[in-house]
């Protein structure tokens, strides 16, 4: 792949926020309780805002005249660089919150590291985003604990969600050439170094939630490289990109 690793990296950050923000926004109007509906919308709004920043910067770095919207609405599946975890369907509320928690825990560690990035613009976006994501993690870990340690049914559903999603955790910590280039430039951390802190935090939360971490650490991969997304992403894009694709001459 001959593209600029910095562009790749920014697309990864931006696409994670875009795809997860889209998924969370699917809940609008149908959450289990009004207060949750409002909280989920806040989270989705934060993520859409972060998308604009990351993809906006990606477009500038690329220098080909693509802005955040162009990148969001006019790329096909193979050009998306989000991890597989965030494109997984919402499932029930428990699955949505488990996915959120597993991502937030990585996301906050990543953003915290990026605050020290040698790239000032990246550091600034990370600093703003980290404040938002600190709250996302607080909320998602509380919910995972509350539902894990709630009723028999809620416990069962949260364990099922964890079992389903755990194979998508590993990808967030797998490094490749892009990560190596970012590390060498002092722009971003080596993904692997975030794992220990993540395991600690996730372990503590799952223990409080009375949930059992799956023993098998098998990790699906192919999202952040774009090599092999899940089938779910394509369906999401057909919806998300439809207007832009159907009416390419229009401005909105």
């Amino acid at each position: 792949m001959s593209t600029d690793p910095k562009f790749e990296f920014l697309c990864r950050m931006g696409d994670n926020a875009l795809v997860l923000g889209h998924r969370v926004s699917e809940w609008c109007g149908t959450a289990p309780v009004l207060e949750e509906d409002i909280a989920l919308a806040n989270m989705a709004l934060d993520l859409i805002g972060q998308t604009q920043l990351w993809l906006g910067m990606a477009g500038e770095v690329e220098g080909a005249g693509r802005d955040a919207d162009k990148l969001a609405f006019h790329r096909d599946v193979w050009d998306f660089r989000n991890v597989l975890l965030v494109e997984q369907p919402n499932g029930d509320f428990g699955q949505t919150m488990m996915r959120q928690f597993l991502f937030d825990a990585w996301h906050l560690a990543q953003l915290t590291a990026l605050i020290d990035s040698s790239d000032k613009e990246i550091a600034a976006i990370a600093e703003k985003s980290a404040k938002e994501v600190t709250y996302h993690l607080e909320r998602s870990s509380d919910t995972v604990i509350g539902l894990g340690d709630g009723t028999e049914e809620s416990h069962r559903r949260m364990q099922a969600a964890l079992d389903l999603l755990w194979p998508y955790v590993g990808e967030m910590f797998l490094g490749d050439d892009v990560d190596a280039a970012m590390k060498d430039a002092g722009i971003a951390p080596d993904p692997a170094i975030l794992r220990a802190g993540y395991d600690q935090l996730v372990g503590d939360t799952l223990a409080a939630a009375t949930l059992t971490k799956p023993e098998d650490d098998f990790a699906h991969r192919g999202g952040k490289s774009g090599a092999r997304h899940s089938e779910h992403l394509g369906h999401m894009l057909t919806q998300m990109q439809w207007l832009q694709r159907a009416y390419p001459d229009a401005t909105w």
């Binding site: 009004l34 207060e35 409002i38 909280a39 909320r139 509380d142 509350g146």
Partner: peptide, 16 residues
């Protein structure tokens, strides 16, 4: 607002 406990009430208050 409604919340299951005080901690959740404070979080919900932040959001609402």
């Amino acid at each position: 607002l409604h919340a299951a406990d005080a901690e959740m009430a404070i979080k919900n208050a932040r959001d609402v």
